[in-house]
Design a protein around this nucleic acid. Structure first.
Length: 255
DNA sequence: ATGACGTCTTGTAGACGA
């Protein structure tokens, strides 16, 4: 099984690249974040033409998540929204079952600044993720998406620059550790303890081409899936070319 | 460098992203 996750920063703007991605990799699952689609405005027809079925959680201008799978093995038993999340209107969590694996596509709030009310929402969202992950433990589970947390200093191009900002704080990392404490495994780090594995680069000042990024998009696997994980990597070609997202897709292969 | 870039909007400037 090939499972991919990608923050596309507007599905409308990125649809040509998403179709290109589906054609190139033919994933068995594609988790999308920041679709920014309004309810009823999700491009189901275009994805159907590409051979995929999507289940989406969409509220309009911001956020928005979805899970795509081939029509032959479509997503089933959809759950929209994360129990206990502070802002249920923001469409940051969707679950579905694909081929006996429970799949989550999530988009953790950015948090803006450590002293912002949005940061409290971010922490409570991560807390709710840990609670839900514990409830889902048992069957094969893959929790994939934009966590908006760099798990360690090795996941940031210059940790000193991020002192006092979001994405690297002790509070965020402690809650991400709580999610991992439910038994989930960070697929990328399990296979590669050294490489940065950046998935996001600022659009500005040529950061991508200078290698100045962060690893904030993760695929977390339940233990039996982690044991089957053969490869996990970033396709940087989708951060290049016409109208790229500021995130690159993360691909995880399960044997 | 307090910006840079990209996307969105009962839009054309401001909010948001990370």
């Amino acid at each position: 099984m090939l499972l991919a996750t990608w923050n596309v920063n507007s599905l409308r703007a990125r649809l040509p690249r998403v179709l290109e991605f589906l054609e190139t990799h033919r994933p068995d699952v594609l988790c999308l974040q920041e679709t920014k689609t309004a309810p009823g405005d999700f491009p189901h027809d275009e994805l159907t033409e590409a051979g995929y079925v999507a289940v989406d959680h969409s509220t309009g201008r911001w956020a928005g998540v979805a899970i795509l799978a081939p029509a032959a093995e479509p997503p089933r038993d959809v759950v929209r929204g994360l129990p206990g999340e502070a802002r249920p209107d923001e469409a940051r969590w969707v679950e579905a079952t694909v081929a006996r694996t429970r799949v989550v596509s999530l988009y953790v709030p950015n948090g803006r600044a450590l002293d912002s009310p949005a940061f409290d929402d971010k922490l409570s969202f991560l807390e709710a993720v840990a609670t839900r992950a514990a409830a889902l433990a048992g069957p094969p589970l893959a929790v994939a998406g934009d966590f908006n947390v760099a798990p360690s200093d090795a996941d940031v191009y210059d940790p000193a620059l991020f002192t006092g900002t979001t994405h690297t704080s002790d509070d965020e990392r402690a809650l991400l550790d709580a999610v991992l404490g439910t038994g989930l495994v960070d697929a990328y780090r399990r296979l590669d303890a050294v490489s940065p594995g950046f998935t996001w680069w600022d659009y500005r000042a040529g950061h991508f081409h200078k290698g100045l990024g962060m690893r904030i998009d993760l695929t977390l696997l339940s233990p039996e899936l982690a044991a089957r994980c053969r490869r996990c990597g970033i396709d940087r070609s989708f951060r290049k070319g016409p109208r790229p997202s500021d995130h690159a897709p993360l691909l995880t292969e399960l044997g």
